[in-house]
Design a protein around this nucleic acid. Structure first.
Ligand code: MN
Ligand code: MN
Ligand code: ZN
Ligand code: ZN
Lengths: 145, 145
DNA sequence: AATTACTTGAGAATCATTCTCAAAATAATT
DNA sequence: AATTATTTTGAGAATGATTCTCAAGTAATT
């Protein structure tokens, strides 16, 4: 199955840096792969804990950095003063809509926006490295309250 | 001149909340109006200090909040783990390009992007409240190094 | 001038994240 | 399997931006 393939690729990534494959690192990556949400460190910590796996927050941060570096995770900031992480099983790039009432996160992509961003940069002779784009909304459910 | 008009509007805004017009509040607003940059609290603090005005950081934060609330300033987050503030003398909405090498901030607006954002939201029956859009780039100057 | 209400600044508190370092674990080598 | 070299882990301290607390100071009103 696909998940094991990813886990093995993660092990390879670890070895490629002359680091060691540890139970903690694997637990964190597995937990990330099994969850589609955009979670903060604390949520991952609590989820692991509830499943009987204790890993320190420091190790979670360190391992998420590693996962980001090798393309297994994406770190995002929706202006809360803390980072959130999502897995990158489905490679497709997307941006996010965040409900300011309930916090629900909805993904979106728009090729026109992606293209215009590139055009804006090349018009100024700037090289586009990455972008951060969030729409803060009141979602359909929160409107009917 | 325009600046005095803004200062007076700020005084009115203060009074409208039954707050008091103080020297500190006016110094902070004036400093903001006289500077076109996207600055963090510490930069405003140091700039005031260098001009002989000592205002505590706590008061700067408090006054900037007030200025934001009444439309005199805009608070932004370019993922540095701290807020930046710019004045809103020229009301026009814009987003930002940030050079990842030298930190230079360049403003941009694109009406197509603005419109598409609205379309994305209405297609989902979401109500768009605000957005945050940054392009991280290597600016023209930094490329020639 | 007196009264009332709000503001200020110093330093403590908060909170996410990073750092430190001794003990534990992994991987490589006998 | 035991030894060795190297890395990792977790506890708790440190950091840094921002907020909070509260006593002393100031503004506005009468
Ligand atoms: Mn996502
Ligand atoms: Mn700007
Ligand atoms: Zn919602
Ligand atoms: Zn630059």
């Amino acid at each position: 199955m696909n998940r094991n393939k990813i886990i093995n690729e993660f092990k390879d990534a670890i070895r490629s840096e002359n680091l060691k494959v540890t139970a903690q690192r694997l637990h964190i990556l597995q937990n990330l792969m099994d969850n589609p949400n955009h979670r903060e460190c604390e949520e991952i910590f609590q989820d692991l804990l509830q499943k009987g796996t204790i890993v320190s927050r420091a190790t979670i941060y360190r391992t998420l950095d590693l996962a980001v570096k090798h393309g297994f995770a994406r770190k995002m900031d929706i202006g809360e003063g803390k980072a959130r992480y999502e897995n990158r099983i489905n490679e497709t790039h997307h941006d996010h809509m965040v409900c300011t009432q309930c916090g629900k996160i909805t993904e979106f992509v728009n090729n026109d926006i992606e293209r215009i961003q590139r055009e804006i940069c090349s018009a100024k002779n700037y090289q586009l490295i990455k972008h951060s784009h969030q729409l803060f909304v009141i979602c359909n459910e929160c409107q009917s309250n």
